[in-house]
Nucleic acid binder design. Structure first.
Lengths: 177, 177
DNA sequence: GATATCATGTAAAAGGTTACATGATTGG
DNA sequence: CCAATCATGTAACCTTTTACATGATATC
């Protein structure tokens, strides 16, 4: 269970609402941690009851009130403990590969079509990440240093997506023949 | 829910017991689909009650009896339908990256130590996959063609692990400085 | 004598997904 | 006028993890 810690990490950087977190899960953090809004709101409630985060209401006109959450001292301690203790390697569950493994049960066209669908998604993810990287590279040196660790996670995304796309090229050729 | 289909795919290739499947999840299939033994036994029971698989008891001396499962015609139909319909891209949940993102809360040494632990695991996975690839390359052409789709999943593992290791080198340099 | 492998399961708890629910504003 | 975005949540269901449970044989 690291959704808890993913949220704490984000709130440690900057306070925000459930909606703000949702956006971050869709963007920067999104390619290495996924969560739906229902999960986030539930977890925020829980973290608040554990006193690891707290919130203040921000009144808005026209829109519903915003609950802006921030990490507490207790939350920072919890985060530090978690970061100092080892985590397990991420487990992979990739249905597309299960499909390809059993691909003899369908047509080559069907496999190629699905591969192409996934390729489009991975390619657009890569383009998005490369744009963020461009922004980072224009930062002055001190700001680059400040964000060097989040930048590493971005690099992981870029290298991972490039490897995926290189594999897809191989796969295309194999299936075509 | 594709554990169901991962099991069906394996049994479509070759009948086997829960234990056999467990071994396969630890080996060939293991780097793109993970499952614990409890999950597998539960799912086998469910698939059997849905008539997608069936089993025969193999008596053994000294060891407990083996339930050898095989896919049924209904199971093959179900598999074919699943394989013909699109799947969602795999979602990534990687706690190590969450840690690195918030790495300023711990020491560089701690980060490097954990990175090294993970590097060892990824490296040994890669070595294992490369050995399997060597075996495949020694197959005669017709056998290579027969196993070309499972081989593609192996390639995905190899390219993925290489990309991970390349990233780890970058990360090491960044954190060291 | 201890640990690993073979071989199977049950039960409780935690975590994640899907469906349902509301309601205003902004842009095409 | 329709879809998207902002903003929050509950409930039911499904999946996964952790803990518990047993017992023989083989290897160090």
């Amino acid at each position: 269970m690291s959704l808890k810690h993913a949220i704490l990490v984000l709130l440690e950087t900057e306070p925000g609402s459930g909606y703000d977190l949702m956006q971050q899960f869709k963007q920067s953090l999104g390619y290495f941690w996924n969560a739906k809004h229902q999960q986030i709101y539930l977890q925020l409630k829980k973290l608040n009851s554990e006193k690891l985060i707290s919130f203040s209401l921000e009144k808005q006109t026209g829109k519903p009130d915003k609950k802006v959450y921030g990490i507490t001292d207790l939350g920072v301690k919890e985060l530090q403990q978690w970061i100092a203790s080892p985590v397990k390697p991420a487990k992979v569950n990739d249905a597309l590969l299960v499909k390809i493994y059993g691909g003899h049960l369908t047509s080559a066209k069907n496999l190629l079509d699905e591969l192409e669908q996934h390729r489009l998604i991975h390619d657009s993810t890569l383009q998005k990440l490369l744009k963020i990287e461009q922004l980072y590279r224009q930062f002055p040196d001190d700001k680059q240093k400040k964000y060097q660790l989040p930048y590493l996670t971005l690099r992981r995304g870029i290298l991972g997506e490039k490897a995926w796309l290189a594999w897809a090229e191989e796969a295309k050729k194999t299936i075509k023949i």
